[in-house]
Every structure is written in structure tokens, then in C-alpha cells.
Design a protein around this nucleic acid. Sequence first.
DNA 1: ATAATTTATAATTTCCAAAATAATTGTAAT
DNA 2: ATTACAATTATTTTGGAAATTATAAATTAT
Lengths: 244, 244
Amino acid sequence: MDQEISATINALLDEDSEPPKTRAEAAYRQFRQDILWGKLPPGAPLRSDELRRNYDIGISPLREALSRLVSERLVTSSGQRGFRVAPVTVSDVLDTMETRIVLECEALSRSIQHGGLEWETQVVSSFHKLSRIELPQEPGEHAERWAMYHRRFHMALLAGCGSSWLIILAKSLFDHAERHRLIALQDMIDARKAGTEHKQIMEAALGGNAKAAVSALDHHYRTTADFVVKWISGNRDKSTATPT
Amino acid sequence: MDQEISATINALLDEDSEPPKTRAEAAYRQFRQDILWGKLPPGAPLRSDELRRNYDIGISPLREALSRLVSERLVTSSGQRGFRVAPVTVSDVLDTMETRIVLECEALSRSIQHGGLEWETQVVSSFHKLSRIELPQEPGEHAERWAMYHRRFHMALLAGCGSSWLIILAKSLFDHAERHRLIALQDMIDARKAGTEHKQIMEAALGGNAKAAVSALDHHYRTTADFVVKWISGNRDKSTATPT
DNA sequence: ATAATTTATAATTTCCAAAATAATTGTAAT
DNA sequence: ATTACAATTATTTTGGAAATTATAAATTAT
């Protein structure tokens, strides 16, 4: 059981750490990263030739990478009119948050119920790493490392749930929410607030108090989404609304 | 609001009814269908040239279609060793069921809460259609139509929930479960076919047709072995950890 | 002047052949 | 007999050219 959880966590988090085996895989990761971090902004057209030059890659792996991202809802493809970065609307942000809470609360409850020692250890260690890295004040390498530890902590909370579907879907929604957050925020969330929230989640989780843990996780995501929504609402003209 | 739900249902269910705009899109739907209906069995290798001939299509749209299916967990792609139809394990089946229940129960609750008249109407009409079509006894066109009405009914139940994430994820999991059901059905048919095989062997043997009898016996054992191999590979999820 | 139609241009999509990698076979050595 | 290694074969992966389709510009008609 412990082995399983450890393997699950690694399969989830270290999948990107080992080098890509194909160019399509590399392109997929790069595009994904660039979309998540707003380098490719919502609604931006993804023209073959342009990308082919910028990313130094052929057309075939390029289109394969984009095709994968279509299924993940990070890219849209309409008819024969090419690919675009998926737009972000307020209802997207809210829907992502709500669905994320449904999935993660279920997963967290199950982790608490039958996570075991290895799960607890992973939660503690990933929390420790996260708490020891200071919150980034500006985008850059440090911000990316913080984001990695942040994701590891949240994924560790879920890794003991025993459901690969829950984990994979939660991971996908986490990434979407990360995109929303990074689009909205130039600076990161308030350090003290996020720090204490993480600690509260962990303590409730390890204390076996499922109700409190779920409540803390819920609150954590809601406040983040509120922040993003406010930002989008304030910059509605800039963000790309989908013209039907 | 009513318009919204109607639009949501149509976007979900009629997306496949309108003709595909590109070859990649057509291939995607075809592969999806063939995987769901067990024509491409779990674990089957998906070799470029072979598929290219069978489906009369070029390599590029072929690979794009498979790439999309990778993100949907219906196809696996390892390193430079090509694509395979995703295997099905017992824990997959259980996990799909459990996760489906989480998502669909949430969506159904929300639909009930604020679905409104249009939602109710869709539920009633889709149920009526389903109840008026008799249950299929064997694969074929009729079975496909029944499956369509079946899916429409279940999707109608969720369509009033107001969350595109919930709907899309539920749809995806519904398809996975459909695959599991049809694979089991296929096994049942194989089992029934075995009954006729015995008869064929006996008749060929008693008729003095050695060549036919030997051929029938050979075929019988081979298909039986295939069946067992499939079953074993489908049940070795918990027992064996994949050697790295 | 506006709408409709044609032409020209730009982009996407597809086919195909070359390159890169894995799997297989054959051979020699321990 | 088994392993190690080389050569061959098969398959995947990739890049770019050709074909298809959409978009923009130009032309004509009303």
C-alpha cells in the first residue's frame, strides 16, 4: 500500500522530470507550460508557421501536441480554422473551482480514511518543502519552483485516495486553476495567508478530521477563485470574450 | 436558462451528428467508436501502416486522432514504441464506476435544484425514446441506436447542472464505462460462440472431414487461449507491480 | 454606394518520403 | 547452451511539399 502511494505520487509528479522521448512530447510540455503561465495568452491564435519558427519544430509533432491540449481543454480547434489558446471566462473560473472542490474533497476524504503512514509522510514532507520556500514576488524561476512545490503539496493530499481517475482529473483541474491564477496575478498571493491556509489543511488532514480538512480546502480554493474573478471582471475589455 | 440547457444538450449530443470538418476529426471519432465497441480490443497495438491501410487515411491525421485519445485515456503511447489501445483492468472498471457516481450524483443534484422546465422536458422525452426501443440482443446497428438513446437519457439528467466541467467529465467517464460494458458483452458473445464451435468440431469429425475438423479444433483452442490471455491481462492489476 | 461575385492571398490540413529509433535475426565467442 | 555483439528488418517519428480550404482584396453589377 505504501509503495503504491509513493509510486502514484511519483508517477504524477515526476512524469515531467524525466526527459521527453519525442519531439511531440517536448512540444506538448512546452505549450502546456506556456499556456499555463500566460506566455501564450487566452484566445491567442496558434498559427503553424509562427509556432514552427518560434519553437523550432516540424509541423507533425506541433499538431500532435496541440491535439492533445484540445482534449485537455487548454486549446480549442474549430473546423479548418486552426488552433487557439482556450479563452478564459468568469464562469470558467467559477466552474473550475467548484468542480475542483467536488473532486478534491472526495479524494482528500478518502486519503484521510485509508491513506496510511506513507501518505502522511508525503504530506508532511511536501508541506515542509513548501513552507520553507519563500513566496515569489514576481514571475521567474523562483516562482516556477514555488508552483512546483505548491502542486506537490496539494497532489500529496490526494495521492492516498486510491483512485487514479480522481487524481488525474484533479491534476488537470489544478492546472486550469493555476492558469487562472497566473493570468490574474502579477504578484503571488499574500504570503502569510496562503502559508497559514496550507498549514491548517495539513493539520486537519493529519488529525483525521475529514470535515475540517475538507472545509479548509474548500475555503482555500474559494478565496483564490474570488481573487481571479475580481481581476477578470476588472479587466474584461482586455481578456478575450468569445464572439459567437 | 431554458435555452442554455437545450444548447448544452445539443452541444453534447449532436456534436457527433454533424459531419466532421477534417480527416483527423473523422479518424478520431472512428477510433473512439471502435475502441468503445471493442472492435479495437484493449492492449491492441495501433501500428501506423496497418491503420493507415484499414482506415484509408494519411499518417498525420492518424497520429493527431490517437494523440487526442491519449489525453482521454483510451489510448496509451509509450516512448517511441507507438500507440496501443488502453488496457482494461478490474480496478479500472471499479474506479470508473466510483468516480462516475461522484460526478453524476453531484451533477444530478444540481440539475434537480435548478434545472427548470426545459431540463425536465428533455429528461422526459429522452426517457420516452429509450423506453420505446427494445433492448438489443446482439451487436449491430440496433445496439448502437439503443446505446445512443441510453446515453442521451443519462446526459439529459446531467444537462441541467450548469457546469460544463461536470458534464464533460461525466461524458468521458460514461464512455469508459460503456467500453467496459461492451467488452464484457463481447466476452459473453465469445462464450456463446464457443458453443457453436463445439458443434462444428463434432460435425466435422463425424463427417470424416479431417482437414475441417483439425482446423476447427485449432481455431477453438486458439480463440479460447486468446480469451484467457485477455482475461488474465485484465485481472493482474493488483498482483503485479510493473517492473521498471 | 452597397452587395455580390471573382480573384488573389494566406492559412490549415494532408500525404509522403526521409530520418531516427526499436525489434529481430544471425553470428561468433565463452 | 547461453550470452554478447553486429547486421538486418520493421516501426515510429519527423520535416516539408502539395492540396484543400478560409480570408482578404478587387471587380462588377445593381
